[in-house]
Design a protein around this nucleic acid. Sequence first.
DNA 1: CCAAAAGTGTTGAAGTTACACCCATGC
DNA 2: GCATGGGTGTAACTTCAACACTTTTGG
Lengths: 251, 251
Amino acid sequence: MQHIHKKINSELNPNVSVDCVIFGFDLEQLTVLLIDRGEISSAFGPRMALPGNLIYDNENLDMAANRVLDELTGLNNIYLEQVGAFGDPDRIHKESDREWLKSIRAEPEARVITVAYFTLVPMQQYKPQASSFAKNADWVPVNEIKELAFDHFEILQAAKEKLKQKIKIQPIGFNLLPEKFTLSQLHRLYESILDKPLDKRNFRRKIQKLDILSSLREKQRGVPHKPSLLYEFNEEKYQELTQTGFDNFGF
Amino acid sequence: MQHIHKKINSELNPNVSVDCVIFGFDLEQLTVLLIDRGEISSAFGPRMALPGNLIYDNENLDMAANRVLDELTGLNNIYLEQVGAFGDPDRIHKESDREWLKSIRAEPEARVITVAYFTLVPMQQYKPQASSFAKNADWVPVNEIKELAFDHFEILQAAKEKLKQKIKIQPIGFNLLPEKFTLSQLHRLYESILDKPLDKRNFRRKIQKLDILSSLREKQRGVPHKPSLLYEFNEEKYQELTQTGFDNFGF
DNA sequence: CCAAAAGTGTTGAAGTTACACCCATGC
DNA sequence: GCATGGGTGTAACTTCAACACTTTTGG
């Protein structure tokens, strides 16, 4: 896949960037989409970073986030929600980051504040393709991430918090799963996001009460235990509930 | 659009500003602190704006918000919480705003993204004093505000939403009141923020269960009806609850 | 037959909503 | 004495947390 961006009649703004925290789920754990910046010549430091880059002066922040995500990973047309703005003056304190910026930016020393966005996507439908200064782009389990470029680790934590909040008031987690899924997979997803165990029976009861699932007549095959029923969303109710939200999904 | 980006660390950054949404309560309704920019020479448009200005390259965003608030209104040392980043390229579309910027900025045409902050303060303890480019600074009832400079009206709406969310999980609303207050005043405050009526008895029950109020032996005087008992906070419990929050103050 | 995950109900406690009347004061 | 807002309790209902055993499959 290649990206042909219509020529943008505007300059990069050296002071404002966007970064994207794209969450996925591999049926085991929560993952996030990172780019690999490759070996940085002389300096040690984390190679991985959130996909992000400077904005253009004539695009709004949401558009910039989508463009940058597309340019670096090939994912496009994704609804992104803002996490917030980050940008301590010492945000670029790692030598490796400084050096890397010199290789890709016109004004590597400029003060940059970055606006972070996040969202959730069904991993299996999005195959990231690295390009531009991303040497590679791939899903990484959130719990395995120990450090990232710049202040991206901090941004990731903030995004995780937002996600925890959001999952309590909207049925967002659902579209991280394959089209047909089991309640146990959904259960594991909620536990991954909230980072704590949830009672199986209580969880199932609550979820079913939301009335957004249709159980299929189909079962898992080939598993060495009692096969689970498969479910899918009731698209209509799901949309409705996404709009209205629920005040109290008190996990 | 041009960028004159200085590498010197103590310069104003032409592309990033902060704006502050400071909420107060006048015992009747929610208010917000605005500055009056005065008559703008030839153009019509709103005179009022949120206190805000460009950041310096060597200060972090939180510090910038505090500094700007102090410079424009004299309020200082206030805990501010981020609302988010705003900054469509067409954010400066009113002629009056454009003209005003020419009078106060070195690069009035620069693309600016702004980071909004909000907080709540006890009005009676903070007497705003306008200075710098603010001709006046004063509390204005939120419901009376119909338009503001730039995209400040939109920012105000976003801050109100944040406030609604926050009041459901933390006892923030309390410190908008005078030191001694009645439960009815607190009740009215919650209704103002949530913008809907709350049952009197249920409200009182819930609030009291939080166990952060001490009832004084003192009563209102001079009111033409049964005088109310006065309350104050239990400072210790209040702090504790502010830390931990409550998952479920389900109004 | 064993291992592994799926699936299923009840109970006691806590919380939620809705609702109507008397009380103390100033004028 | 009247207008005004202050103050109080209960009942029906819903929601919540805690908890253990049987079922179905693959190997």
